[in-house]
């Protein structure tokens, strides 16, 4: 009940604050930009340079999903950092909501949005080879990724500037979605540890049970470790 009340309050806060509304709608802008690029740039490249983008669409979709969920994670991370600086998080932690309740409230909100934007992204790109199960899985893993990025910024950064440094560094994680293209064994091996690699792999091989299982395990480990670290550190 407390969670629902806080969730409603968050929605009110976001609707009242135009900046938050715009920030949370920013992923839609990204989807529109990429759709426009698909519409105009792909035929242009094919006609002018003879470059066929079709084989790379799976990477483009992975990039859009990761950018959207990463963006929401960064926004959530900074929202929590600001709340910590303003002592709002400390205040909420001593209410019946509790420390984990506060964290869950913030992360679930952003992750729900991430699921919605992932579904919109996949629908807009009309990716033909993805079965329904994979679409749901990709949306859920995008939500996990949002939570992971938000937690990495919140629990890793002591202040806003470190948060920005983290955000900048975390953007490089997207590279791991494309490591197959570089054909560097050490880089591919390193990528196994990071969620973006698995998200990209699911899009390319949606039927592989092994890939699905490993993707879920990697995401769960990251999330589990970060939540454990947060609860231990804040305690």
């Amino acid at each position: 009940m407390i969670q629902i009340t806080l969730f409603k309050n968050d929605l009110k806060q976001i609707v009242r604050d135009p900046i938050m509304t715009l920030l949370l709608l920013a992923p839609l802008l990204l989807i529109v930009v990429f759709e426009l690029l698909e519409f105009f740039l792909v035929p242009y490249l094919a006609a002018e340079v003879g470059f066929d983008m079709t084989p790379w669409f799976s990477y483009v979709l992975a990039f859009v999903l990761l950018m959207n969920s990463g963006m929401l994670g960064i926004v959530t991370g900074f929202m929590m950092l600001d709340e910590r600086d303003g002592n709002i998080s400390q205040l909420l932690e001593v209410t019946p909501l509790g420390r984990i309740g506060y964290l869950a409230n913030r992360l679930i909100f952003a992750s729900t949005l991430s699921i919605i934007y992932a579904l919109i992204g996949i629908a807009v790109f009309k990716w033909p080879n993805l079965p329904f199960f994979s679409i749901i899985l990709l949306s859920v893993l995008s939500a996990f990724y949002t939570a992971i990025i938000g937690l990495l910024i919140f629990s890793g950064a002591e202040d806003k500037v470190k948060g920005l440094t983290f955000a900048k560094g975390l953007n490089t994680l997207v590279l791991f979605a494309f490591t197959d293209l570089f054909a560097l064994p050490w880089l591919t091996f390193l990528s196994w540890v990071f969620p973006p690699y698995w998200l990209s792999l699911i899009i390319k091989t949606p039927q592989s049970l092994l890939v699905i299982t490993l993707a879920i395990i990697v995401h769960m480990i990251w999330l589990g470790v970060l939540i454990f670290r947060y609860s231990k550190r804040e305690a």
């Binding site: 500037v161 440094t165 490089t172 590279l175 293209l181 570089f182």
Partner: peptide
Amino acid sequence: RFQLKHGFYLVYAIITVMYLIILSF
């Protein structure tokens, strides 16, 4: 000193390596 402490140089070293991997291809 502040930027060093906050990891600006480290993060840009990582970003530079990332760009170099991409550019090398």
